[in-house]
Amino acid sequence: MNRSYLFIPASNAGMILSSMVLDADAIIFDLEDGVALNQKISARTLLQHSLDTLDFLDKTLYVRINNASSDFFLEDVICANHPKVHGVVLPKAEIKSLEACLKVLDPSKTILCLIESALGVIQLPQLCQMSSQVKGLLLGGEDLSADCGVERTQAGHEIDYARKSLVMHAKAFNLMAIDTPFVDIEDHQGLKEEVKYVASLGYDAKVAINPRQVHVIHEALKVDPLKLKEAKMIVEAFEKQRTQGVGVFNLNGKMIDEPVYLKAKHLIEKEERRTP
């Protein structure tokens, strides 16, 4: 399971090259906001040649394509159909844009819906069910707050509803929940706190906009070893009790039943999937 998704502007030859050796679990080559309008086509050309030539080893590669209503959309999707690319990040994901993407994207590719409009938020139930190619939801806090005409704050109360709604839909439809970037690249403490907060809501991963954020994200997503140890004890004890026909029992003063067991098991599985 990917913990971090690092944006790399597809116009930057040096950054594409260095992305091969960075610690991020997944790389998102950005053809959209990270590339100036007059560099869009040359960025795509550079990305195509880089994908043909470079070996990204075990990195999961995504391409953030341009908006479905832009002139670049079709060629961007064709670029993302490259065998080394895992899938696309679909900006301004709404029913119409997802429909357009599904028409041209290779069926073997996955889609991460970037939820960054009010309409995208209220269309979450449909977006989650439109195609099995949709594997994740990614929150775009900056564009969403712009779309709502509100100021983006570090506290994030303005995106709170969308953040919680997104993770709930991701859980309901078994999709990855990926949180919005933390834009202050110097504030590692703030990033760490935000990662811990969104992880407590159920988020699986966070987007990074700078390579230095990746390590902070990975550290913050690590499960407390004591909690992991306790979870292993619960699972072991519950499975032993279950063979003897016991469904509820006391372990070190705490009541253990099926939901507690499942939560502990989920924690262990999540940690195992996250361990690279």
């Binding site: 030859a13 086509i41 040359s42 050309t45 550079l46 040649h49 880089s50 043909d52 030539t53």
Partner: peptide, 16 residues
């Protein structure tokens, strides 16, 4: 620049 970057940049200059 590596070879693939040189090719990409020449191609982009031609496209323009």
């Amino acid at each position: 620049a590596l070879d693939h970057v040189i090719i990409a940049r020449v191609e982009s200059a031609i496209q323009r």
